[in-house]
């Protein structure tokens, strides 16, 4: 099995798929960095660069006043306390919250990329992993070896999982190194808030807590990994079913893009919450702005994505093991 996976890795690398991904990241990350830089520039201009410490101190004083006031409901008080802590942290560590470091960029990038950009990269990796063997006719060589068909397919799937993971790691590394040139490399232990929970109209802040940013980044990329794996698995199935690489890529791109549009376009259409591609923005659960769909929770989203992956894998393996190779 390791030999089979090694074979697939060689093909993945020699096909230059990973290079394409790296290149796309190398071009896009500086662009995003620059965009982020412009936004913070604006923010700093509005606030005034020199007195951000004064503003923070003022905010803390205001918050302490509200805390003392009897009119503020109890559950909000813990939230305000955390907010004070956060601001205090910025002051203590001399961090301008409007001018974040590279780790903050890496976190924001995941949040922005998870619904569309990552899935597109994943499709580039996954769409031709099986279909290219059909298109090139090399499937005939693979399937006439003394190796079970399911093992060949499994080695391809494992290779795909490796590649997707590698792509996310590459994003973190490139994102950190490139954006750090402008933003500086500090900020891993920056305190960020997590645990918002929207219930109807109310923002439930019972579970809000502060965690260091590196933890947040790990969680965000973990969730992004999960949604990328789902996209990869579905693409993998399409790649098995459709023998033409261009079609399989086209189908997947259409599906990913319409999923992302649909979830914003028709949030009340309840059938949408059973589609996989409307659940890709898992990181929004961390940010406290849950998906726009009705009544979905993180476990529900994970369950939907898992169900899609499992069904896709079953279809892929059954078809691949049984199918006649005619062309």
């Amino acid at each position: 099995m390791t030999k089979l996976i090694y074979n697939e890795m060689v093909k993945m690398i020699r096909k230059k798929r990973l290079w394409v991904i790296a290149l796309i990241l190398l071009v896009l990350i500086p662009i995003f960095t620059y965009a982020q830089y412009r936004t913070t520039e604006n923010a700093i201009k509005q606030l005034g660069t020199s007195n951000w410490r004064a503003i923070l101190q003022q905010q803390i004083v205001d918050q302490q006043n509200r805390l003392a006031s009897a009119r503020v409901p109890e559950e909000w008080k813990s939230y305000i306390k955390l907010s004070i802590q956060q601001n205090q942290y910025y002051l203590d560590h001399d961090i301008n919250p409007a001018a974040p470091g590279a780790p903050t960029f890496v976190r924001k990038f995941a949040e922005d990329a998870v619904s569309l950009f990552f899935p597109l990269l994943v499709v580039i990796l996954a769409a031709d992993i099986v279909s290219s063997e059909h298109a090139g006719g090399t499937i005939k060589l693979l399937l006439t070896r003394p190796v079970a068909r399911w093992k060949i397919l499994l080695s391809k799937y494992i290779t795909l999982l490796f590649s997707v993971s590698f792509m996310l790691i590459l994003t973190i590394v490139f994102g950190y190194l490139l954006s750090g040139i402008i933003f500086g490399y500090d900020g891993w232990s920056l305190q960020v808030m997590i645990g918002f929970n929207q219930q109807g109209e109310h923002l439930n802040v019972d579970h809000v807590q502060l965690i260091p940013q590196w933890k947040y980044i790990l969680m965000a990329y973990g969730l992004a990994w999960f949604s990328c794996i789902t996209v990869a698995t579905i693409s993998f199935m399409v790649s098995v079913l459709v023998k033409n690489t261009a079609s399989s890529m086209g189908i997947m791109l259409a599906a990913v893009i319409s999923g992302s549009i649909l979830s914003q376009f028709a949030p009340n259409w309840s059938a949408l919450k059973y589609l996989a591609f409307t659940h890709l923005s898992l990181t929004e659960y961390l940010e406290g702005q849950p998906l726009m769909l009705d009544n979905v929770t993180l476990p529900f989203s994970l369950a939907v994505l898992t169900a899609w992956s499992v069904v896709s894998l079953i279809i892929a393996f059954v078809t691949f093991s049984k199918r006649d190779v005619l062309a």
């Binding site: 060689v10 093909k11 020699r14 096909k15 230059k16 090139g136 006719g137 090399t138 005939k140 060589l141 006439t144």
Partner: peptide
């Protein structure tokens, strides 16, 4: 050992 139709190999290797 076999060749079915054309000798199709990995062109990029």
């Amino acid at each position: 050992g076999c060749i079915v139709e054309n000798p199709e190999l990995y062109l990029y290797l």
